[in-house]
């Protein structure tokens, strides 16, 4: 059994997290999402989509489920993992002041979950004030610092705002909920992209064979120094005596022993405007040259 992908949506009060979640529930593009929210009342789906609802769960006819997390988020996650429904993807709405990384870390720790990133939603109209608020400024800054994707809602992204955000986080910045959802949904199966698929507007893909054996630490070093613009990277790479599973989301890099022998290869997904496949080709060619150089000698 492979783990269920888990994404955390963070951001301060009023940033637009719920709007994004309502969009996901309305059009999940064939995936069965389980969305955990703080406040049920703000969830707003068409009556026509409503299959059933009780005190703390809404079932939608499109296969999605929305539930409240109650007083203890982690116990609620445990209930999902041990329950009957096996969603394709879990999305958690962090509370307005929460550190999304503290929640998302559970997907790194728990083998039945797969870390699928932190999206921090930023209220473009108010964020600059929020960042210097004497009470919550530091916590708002931290929400942006840990983001793997930043979504600026409510306003156009000005150069000034973009610069401010870049000083806090290197995460790609998105300007529409459609693009954000597209990134969230972008498939990352470790296969070559199907050339007949129409190109997406928001993201682009890159694929390489991985026919060289790597030293694990050297591979991690290479992944840390990959070209900018990659949001996710996934695949299998051979080490001297075993198979390694590679899972990269934003700044998070997991390279673990994989018990089965599988086809090697790496696929990367990034914003079309930021990720350049040529850069990735060059980067990978260089990484392969030093594949077996011990990390200490790099």
């Amino acid at each position: 059994m492979t783990g269920i992908p888990l994404t955390v949506i963070g951001g301060y009060l009023g940033a637009g997290k719920t709007t994004l979640i309502n969009q996901i529930l309305r059009d999940p593009q064939g995936k069965r999402y389980l969305v955990m929210v703080n406040d049920f009342g703000a969830i707003n789906v068409d009556a026509s989509l409503l299959a059933s609802a009780d005190e703390d769960t809404i079932q939608l006819s499109n296969g999605c489920v929305c539930c409240t997390m109650g007083a203890d988020l982690f116990l609620a996650i445990g209930d999902v993992l041990d329950g009957d429904m096996r969603p394709d993807h879990i999305v958690i709405e962090a509370s307005g002041i929460a550190d999304p990384a503290k929640i998302a870390n559970v997907a790194v720790a728990e083998p039945d979950l797969v870390y699928q990133g932190i999206i921090t939603v930023v209220d473009g109209a108010n964020i600059l004030d929020q960042l210097v608020d004497r009470f919550v400024g530091d916590q708002v800054r931290d929400q942006i610092r840990v983001a793997d994707l930043i979504y600026v809602s409510k306003t156009e992204l000005s150069d000034h705002l973009s610069m401010q955000l870049t000083t806090i986080s290197k995460a790609p910045i998105l300007e529409s909920d459609a693009a954000t959802i597209e990134m969230l949904l972008s498939p990352s199966t470790p296969k070559a992209p199907n050339p007949t698929t129409a190109p997406h507007t928001a993201y682009t893909k890159w694929f390489t064979e991985a026919d060289v054996a790597f030293n694990r630490n050297t591979l991690i070093y290479a992944l840390q120094n990959r070209p900018e613009g990659v949001f996710r990277m996934k695949g299998f790479v051979r080490a001297e005596t075993r198979m390694l599973s590679v899972h990269v989301v934003g700044a998070h890099i997991d390279v673990t022993t994989f018990p089965n022998d599988v086809e090697t290869g790496l696929v990367a997904i990034g914003l079309a405007s930021e990720m350049n496949p040529q850069d990735l080709n060059k980067w990978w060619a260089k990484a392969k040259e030093k594949a077996l150089t011990p990390y200490s000698m790099l």
Binding site: F74, I77, G78, D82, K102, I103, V106, V108, A109, E110
Partner: peptide, 15 residues
Amino acid sequence: EMAAMFPVMRRLGID
């Protein structure tokens, strides 16, 4: 912290 403890608690039935 909870995220790191949770997988153990889940498997040991600490609720």
